[in-house]
Amino acid sequence: MLALATRVVSDYGKVLARVSPGVYGLPESLLPYPKARIRMALQYLLQHVAEEHPELREGLARGYVYLAQFVADDQAEIIARGTATASGVGADEGDAEPAMRLINGIKAEMERALDELAGVVPVAS
C-alpha cells in the first residue's frame, strides 16, 4: 500500500509542479487519478510518515488542502470566465457571480480539508 500511495502522490506532485499556485478552479482533467484516490493516498502517507520528517509532512498536508482547487472541468471554465470578467478582460458581467460562488465553495472545501488534517497531522509543540 505504501508504494501505491507514494506513486499516486508522486504523480499528483508532478501536476502541482506544472500549475500556477493561487489559481482557483483548476480542471480535474489535469489530475492523474480521481480526487478521491489522491486524497486517500495523501491521508495514508500522512498517517505513516514519521514525525521526524516535518518538511515532508507539511508538503503532503499542503497537497491535501490544494486538492480542493481541482474542480469539474465545466466549473473550471465558469471560474475562468468569471475571473476574466472580474479582471476587465471578459465581456459578460453575468459570469462573475457564478464564478464567485464556485470559488467560495473551493475555499470552504479547503477549510474542511484543514479541519480533517487536524486529526491526522500532529501539531508541533
Rank of each mutant, 00 (worst) to 15 (best):
V19L: 07
A91S: 15
L26V: 00
R112S: 09
I78V: 13
A118S: 13
S87C: 03
V89A: 08
E58M: 12
M110C: 08
P27V: 01
D92S: 13
P122A: 12
E52C: 10
P54V: 07
T85Q: 09
Y33I: 01
D95I: 03
A84S: 08
A61R: 12
L2M: 01
A68E: 02
E109R: 15
T83E: 11
E28D: 04
E52H: 13
E109S: 14
A91Y: 15
V65F: 07
G90K: 14
N104V: 01
L4D: 08
V9S: 07
T83N: 10
A124R: 14
R62L: 12
G13Y: 04
R57S: 06
I38Q: 11
A96Y: 15
R57N: 07
E109V: 00
P32E: 14
P27N: 04
R81M: 00
A124P: 05
E55W: 09
G94A: 11
D11M: 03
G119E: 02
L16W: 12
A118N: 12
H53G: 00
F70W: 09
M40Q: 05
A99K: 13
A50R: 15
E111L: 14
L45K: 02
Q47M: 10
G63V: 04
Y44D: 03
G25L: 08
A108G: 12
S87G: 04
G13F: 03
G25E: 07
Q47G: 05
R112D: 07
L45N: 01
V120D: 04
G25M: 08
A72E: 15
V15M: 08
P122L: 06
R62S: 11
L42T: 09
A96C: 12
Y44V: 02
V23K: 15
E58T: 13
R18V: 06
A61K: 11
A96K: 15
V71I: 05
L45R: 02
N104S: 08
Q75A: 15
A41V: 00
